[in-house]
Amino acid sequence: QDGGAGLLGRMAVLPEQRGTGLGAALVRAAEDAARERGLAAMELHAQTHALGFYERLGYTAHGEEFLDAGIPHRHMVRDLG
């Protein structure tokens, strides 16, 4: 789907694996797969406590905070170009 956006959903890393680079590697692998399919962007809904993690990977928050399963989230996007 040339020029569309991929959606990264429900990603989690076990607490004992956090800080090892595993989460960033998973996000990058998903981005690579999206690029291979001709997608121009990646979108996700980040729990607010994880905003910094995704910002460090190049994502930008958009819109207002919202609840998903009772947990505050923000919509985030990254251009894959």
Rank of each mutant, 00 (worst) to 15 (best):
A30G: 14
R28T: 13
E43R: 13
T60R: 15
E36N: 10
D32I: 06
E36V: 00
P15S: 10
R37K: 10
E64W: 06
F53H: 05
H45R: 07
G58L: 11
G23I: 01
E43V: 10
M42I: 13
R28D: 10
T48A: 09
A24T: 01
T48R: 11
R18T: 09
Q17N: 08
F66E: 11
T48L: 11
A46G: 09
R37G: 14
E43Q: 14
H45C: 10
H45G: 14
E16A: 11
E65F: 07
A33Y: 08
L39K: 05
A46H: 02
L57V: 09
R35Y: 04
A30N: 01
V27C: 06
R37D: 09
E16Q: 12
H45P: 00
A29Y: 06
T60Q: 15
Y59M: 02
D32N: 10
L44Y: 08
L26Q: 02
V27I: 06
D32S: 09
A41D: 08
G63Q: 11
H62S: 12
A33G: 08
A61C: 07
A34I: 01
L39E: 03
R56N: 14
G19K: 03
L26W: 03
F66C: 10
A61F: 01
A46W: 01
F66Y: 15
L44S: 06
Q47M: 09
L44K: 03
G38K: 02
L26F: 04
M42H: 05
L26T: 00
F53E: 04
E64L: 13
L26P: 01
R37Y: 03
R56D: 12
R56E: 12
E64A: 15
A33P: 00
H62L: 15
Y54V: 02
A61M: 05
D32L: 10
R28V: 08
L44P: 05
G23S: 03
L51C: 07
E16W: 13
A50W: 04
A34C: 14
E55F: 07
R35W: 03
G58D: 08
A30C: 12
G52M: 07
T20A: 06
A29T: 07
R28L: 10
R37A: 13
R35I: 09
H62F: 14
T60W: 04
A34G: 01
G23P: 03
H62A: 14
E31V: 05
A24P: 00
R37N: 11
L44N: 08
L39T: 02
R37E: 13
A30S: 13
M42S: 06
M42N: 02
H45M: 09
L14C: 05
G21M: 02
Y54R: 04
L14P: 00
G58A: 11
F66V: 12
A33H: 05
E43N: 08
A41E: 11
G19T: 09
R35G: 03
R28N: 03
A29C: 07
Q47H: 13
Q17I: 00
A24D: 01
R18W: 05
H49A: 11
F53K: 02
G58T: 10
Y54W: 06
F53M: 07
Y54H: 04
G52P: 05
G63V: 14
Y54A: 07
A41R: 09
T60E: 15
Y54F: 14
Q47Y: 08
A24G: 14
G63L: 12
E65A: 15
G23N: 02
Y59V: 01
A30R: 00
A29D: 12
Y59N: 04
V27A: 05
V27Q: 05
